[in-house]
């Protein structure tokens, strides 16, 4: 998106003052309305589709496969791939999104969750596909929140078949067998446990202020950017600075970073609650 000098100046004035006025009348820590659905792909264990009002859309799928475990590393059992429509597979955004998501997931998923028996475990293949994004986007990092929400919802709606054979197979030669009744399938992330996949929040810095979920115009005037992770009900690693456009770049101060963490801390819980209600209200067609 190309802004004229006047437009840019106007936006900067509005966003960098002590009282922030965003072009779409949002609060600094308010999200745009998100539209999402879950479990609509019959071939996947979990799936989701998330859409933003500016037309960006991401579809995520989780597929599980039983594999023989050789090492006890969770990273070997996780396979995260991001695909952005129209971008090459080795484009910077595609590669870094995959590794950011994989690392943050590996920290949040305990090995016991995927372990099936002594010898076998589930291998998760998580695919996120960005179908569309605003045409004048200046940096792909702004859609990281969208991708992480899609992955969150897909994982939350993932259900795995119930194991009917024994879990102690260190001595016996037995391949795991499963119940063929999908009504007995259990969720990968049980409802009653606090355990949840991580979310990543992108914030744009304009002057002394930080804006959550920046829109395309706000990205254009952003002076710097940050993304902050949110897992097990508090903000935390990964925290990283990202450049949201190529024109202006100013340094982040300590205050900005602390501000970002406390903003994410305060809104993270309600975002999780909203996303969880989508998972609970979605009825699987299959």
């Amino acid at each position: 998106m190309v802004l004229s000098t006047t437009e840019r100046y106007y936006l900067l004035e509005c966003l960098s003052g002590s009282k922030v006025i965003r072009a779409d009348a949002r609060r600094v820590d308010q999200f745009r309305p998100v539209e999402a659905t879950c479990s609509f792909l019959p071939n996947s264990n979990g799936s989701s589709r998330v859409r933003l009002p500016d037309g960006s859309e991401c579809i995520a799928s989780v597929k599980a496969k039983v594999v023989k475990v050789e090492s006890s590393e969770v990273t070997d059992l996780l396979n995260v791939e991001v695909d952005i429509n129209g971008q090459r597979d080795d484009a910077e955004a595609v590669v870094s999104f995959s590794s950011i998501l994989k690392e943050s997931l590996a920290q949040c998923i305990p090995e016991s969750l995927l372990k099936l028996t002594e010898k076998y475990a589930f291998e998760l293949s998580i695919d996120a596909i960005v179908i569309s994004y605003p045409s004048g986007i200046s940096s792909f990092y702004s859609i990281l929140t969208l991708v992480s929400m899609a992955v969150y919802l897909a994982l939350k709606s993932t259900s795995l078949p119930l194991l009917t054979s024994t879990t102690e197979d260190a001595e016996v030669e037995e391949e795991p067998t499963f119940s063929d009744d999908w009504d007995l399938a259990k969720l990968l992330f049980p409802k009653d446990r606090l355990l949840a996949p991580p979310l990543l929040f992108v914030l744009a810095m304009v002057g002394p202020n930080l804006l959550l979920d920046p829109s395309v115009e706000e990205l254009e005037v952003a002076e710097n950017g940050l993304f902050v992770g949110f897992a097990s009900n508090k903000a935390g690693a990964p925290i990283r600075s990202i450049s949201l456009n190529s024109t202006n770049n100013k340094g982040l101060s300590t205050n900005h970073i602390l501000d970002a963490v406390s903003t994410v801390d305060s809104v993270g819980g309600s975002v999780l609650k909203a996303l969880n209600s989508i998972v609970e209200n979605s009825t699987s067609e299959f």
Partner: peptide, 12 residues
């Protein structure tokens, strides 16, 4: 583009 999860077995 055929997504990797389109078929029963994941296939990129």
């Amino acid at each position: 583009s055929v997504t990797p999860f389109a078929t029963v077995e994941r296939n990129k």
